[in-house]
Design a protein around this nucleic acid. Sequence first.
DNA 1: TCAATTTATGAAACCGCTTTCTCAGCCGGG
DNA 2: CCCGGCTGAGAAAGCGGTTTCATAAATTGA
Lengths: 334, 334
Amino acid sequence: MPRRSSKATIAEVAQRAGVSPATVSRVFNARFVGRSDVAERVRTAAAELAYTPSHLARSLALGQTEAVAFLVPDLANPAFQTILSAMSKTAARDGYRVLVADSAESPDDEPLLASQTRRRCDAIVLCAPRMAKEKLLALADQLRPLVLINRPDPGFAVPSLSIDYRSGIARLAEHLHQLGHRRLVYLGGPPNSVSDHHRRQGLTDFERRHGDVVIDRLAAGAAIEDGLALAGTVRNSGATAALAFNDLVAIGLLNGLGRLGLTVPDDISVAGFDDIPFASFTTPPLTTASVPHAELGAAAWRRLCQTLRGQPADGDELFPTRLELRASTGPLPS
Amino acid sequence: MPRRSSKATIAEVAQRAGVSPATVSRVFNARFVGRSDVAERVRTAAAELAYTPSHLARSLALGQTEAVAFLVPDLANPAFQTILSAMSKTAARDGYRVLVADSAESPDDEPLLASQTRRRCDAIVLCAPRMAKEKLLALADQLRPLVLINRPDPGFAVPSLSIDYRSGIARLAEHLHQLGHRRLVYLGGPPNSVSDHHRRQGLTDFERRHGDVVIDRLAAGAAIEDGLALAGTVRNSGATAALAFNDLVAIGLLNGLGRLGLTVPDDISVAGFDDIPFASFTTPPLTTASVPHAELGAAAWRRLCQTLRGQPADGDELFPTRLELRASTGPLPS
DNA sequence: TCAATTTATGAAACCGCTTTCTCAGCCGGG
DNA sequence: CCCGGCTGAGAAAGCGGTTTCATAAATTGA
């Protein structure tokens, strides 16, 4: 009887079955072509020893771990959770697992965190909206295979998946404009956020089309508290409608305004961005630009998978958003 | 010039520095005690070759991967997200990464998914509220080191971390009782859920203390839709207050009741469970039992870490909940 | 000054699996 | 009947590190 405590190795199975380790390996990897009684003997021996191949050793020999990493700035954000969830499920179908890393919104730690995490797996999906471009460029090579989220930039020879924030927010603004709003306020995202920059570009596009509109830009952030904190400022801004960086900020704002005694949308309209699962359950339900996060997660895995298999990877992809008109936006207060 | 494409190995660094691989290994692991110029030569050579030790090879030699797994029934649930987030951050501080696996609420797939995932890392945290006890028992041994969440059961010689759902829901019921409610309805969780069972026990405890109370038990589920779907049933039940399996169900119910024209808490009180981040931002803000998910996540890592280091692991832990009284519960309608 | 230690470094085994290469043994054909 | 071509299975060389053990050099003490 072999030592009970430790796991059985391929050599032990081989010995017990009276064959070589090579044969055991072949049986377990469906590369075995010999007599079927030999295969049966191997399987029996393996079962008796409760043998499980060491994934680690296998990975080393094969040169691949069957795991990929996903680095996000904040795992607490439902948007990233949806991406993660979809990516994890899709990858699991191909036998891959995903390793998560949360940079806790601190761009300075991201390079180290990313490269450390990347070393343990075959590829990485990087969502680093605030990392400086030059740092990202320097990193890109050592991280490859790599897929970037929301960093559409021809400077990197890296497939990227991005949300069309620019036109999405412009369409939200158009919607407000049609409702009669002329004074808007934008609650911006975290400093240096690339995706915030895209939204601001969208707002500028919108302004160019409508000379009669004024948009106030505020610095908020990405969390509920950021929206909550700015409720007073928004009220005093004179704007009749607010566009938030994302749904979290919008939800915070919605609550803050409520606490100030304002009614949405009668006193002021509020729109978010992302369409997180809760957006339809706020009071009033939140008008927002719906982002296909699950599709994004699945697409991220597809890209990685192509690269890992040596297939030519699809190019950059820009995901459109869908306007989700709900009750938090309404006609201009009379 | 060595082949550019592939990564440098320890042997190449050794050759370039004119030392043996053993020395390079020692330098990189701070076990080096020799002349400092030798160490410097090694570091220079490594830098020139952009050498990064293969985590895989290191893991194989060391017998540990510095990764742990986390298996959840549904990654889309904010409660699990918070646990994951906390666990991931805590583990990262010790250089560990976490591997996620989502069983998509299908208990049948869990054993396979768990053991496959477990093989790739050093330990696993299992949250499988619906897996049959005998299956779990059979699994436990091959999964060890293992920490169970919400499966406090002396049958397993496995550390477990659990939420005190039983007394938590009883206290919520007490709260409603004090407000004058005598007819309650409970929107139960998924079938065979252990944590649902605990909640039901808590309700029974409560009933025993108060002969004047009637509690209707409904089968709901764990998601927003489940609460939403039952709004009509709840209204027709004649109950003046509803206790939901969790906040998601409560939020769904809140919305469903609103659509039916009922006002919470004037017409009916609603309480949730978990205190997910959104619970304080619903309308009205949700009364709930606050669960320390982040602490739970951190504690899970601590347990694993102790076991991995061979220290005696702390025993089972039962996390108390904190009553979070908000505006969704109010006095009995007059 | 020389033996006894201590110290810095390298050779080699090992972690557990995959895979190439090699070689018996068996087949049929001439 | 003998030989070349197949075939099934094993030996061994990796994968890229770590670590034990041995050894040559340096240090110490008498």
